[in-house]
Write a protein that binds this DNA or RNA. Structure first.
Lengths: 253, 253
DNA sequence: CTTGTCAAAATGTCTGACATTTAATAGGCT
DNA sequence: AGCCTATTAAATGTCAGACATTTTGACAAG
């Protein structure tokens, strides 16, 4: 793969890193491929070798690249990517068209993890946590008819508040995964023939049940409610095949 | 805090980063404190400014430090650490005396997460996964009477195999947390008056039940068994207060 | 066919100078 | 006194060039 397709560039090393990272995440190179040499990048983007080295250092620290003296720079496999690195989340979130496979993996993770996190949140939440949840929920309700991007930010804030409320250092770090996955979902929902909006009001109601359960410090209810929030998405993506597994206390037609 | 207490140093920038990281993780500096300047580090350790900058770049990318031009380098709060960064795990694993608070957080995470991961593993495991689990388990059994360090490696391998078997990109990354937490546990168990060895044979039997459940593709059993593996530790650390919550395979009223 | 040596190419490192940002400080004005 | 401004100092950030090191492949000798 050459550099010809990449957009031009002006700015610091961070921006360059972001640019290259998104090209990698978009699959412009295959795992094992050789990555352009420092000097080529330097001349192509018109920046100093220093900036290139700094950018490549970022990509290396997130597991996207592997560099060895004499050998050159190689592209690493998706299995080696540090998906939980905040830098990676940032790059992923702004990606126009993330690999569907990757989005599916992240959402499968969330579908299995968030019920547990919600349970912990219901056990550990303090007043400030509930307030944050409440504020995010109000924002979601208020922007139900607004632009999807705006609604998505409150959606991210809501789920992040759940992770925060778990009061666990490790779980809290994983809130970074929310933005990329939620943004990817709304992008997909804007494709034609997709009826995710149809369930928007329903989605809001499910979020309300999570909020309510955490406020009532009801772990079991919180766990169930969190699963229900993600269930529709999980079914859509084939993460879970049978909707009857979690039979909603009411009914799922 | 000065540099006087730190051991000498010879080697590359990675080693220097590790040295400084462990000093930070050990709490030699408080959050918000100023970190020594590049030139001071350079002269103190007898390395070039370049090496120092590379080392500090690592510490910055893991959220341990925060650097701004003109202001200097500051130590960040534990809330900002990237605990899921593989580099961080490596530094943590070799730490002589990790902060008890941190170990507790990681184990609380594992106690809540591993049952879910084991469930996924039971649903998704393939032959190779079961083989890896089996091999690690045999290693654990074989080294039951050997040095703790050796046994711990198989213990890490066993739990990592569970994460791997989940076949989820995100969960698999979290296997990195295993080594530091397990090493911290065996260190603590070697303290006098600690009777963790007493339960070693029992621990082996619990691991066997996890292996068995995953081999049988029994998600419910795997989830319960994984919880039981960590339960004793969780009770010891006060993560869960009541041992009756999960009353062993017997019955759940 | 194997082995050793050499050359080319890539990343890694060093050094010194300079740029930029930030914070403190001194000075002058009202 | 109090406030605003210009200057200075101190730290990190950047650059350019030379050099070091590592890896790989080619080539020739045994």
């Amino acid at each position: 793969m050459t550099l010809d397709g990449l957009p031009p560039h002006q700015g610091g090393a961070e921006e360059l890193a972001c640019l290259l990272a998104r090209a990698l995440l978009a699959g412009h190179w295959q795992p094992g491929d050789a990555f352009p040499r420092e000097l080529d990048l330097s001349t192509h983007f018109g920046v100093s070798r220093n900036q290139v080295r700094n950018a490549l250092a970022s990509l290396t620290s997130t597991g996207l690249l592997e560099r060895t003296a004499g050998r050159g720079t190689r592209v690493r496999s998706i299995d080696d990517w540090h998906l939980l690195d905040p830098l990676m989340s940032e790059w992923l979130a702004g990606l126009a068209d993330p690999a569907p496979h990757l989005v599916r993996e992240i959402l499968a993770f969330r579908y299995s993890a968030e019920p547990v996190v919600a349970r912990l949140a219901a056990e550990a939440a303090e007043a400030a946590d509930v307030e944050r949840l409440e504020a995010a929920y109000q924002g979601m309700a208020r922007t139900a008819d607004a632009a999807h991007e705006q609604h998505a930010e409150y959606d991210v804030a809501f789920h992040d508040a759940i992770y925060q409320a778990s009061h666990n250092l490790v779980w809290r770090q994983m809130g970074h995964l929310l933005r990329p996955s939620i943004i990817a979902l709304i992008q997909r929902s804007q494709e034609p023939l997709h009826r995710l909006d149809a369930g928007l009001h329903d989605s809001l109601a499910r979020h309300a049940r999570v909020l309510d359960a955490i406020r009532r410090r009801a772990p079991d209810a919180a766990e169930r409610a969190a699963r229900d929030v993600l269930q529709r998405t999980a079914v859509d993506l084939g993460i879970v095949t049978d909707t009857a597994i979690t039979p909603q206390h009411a009914v799922n037609p």
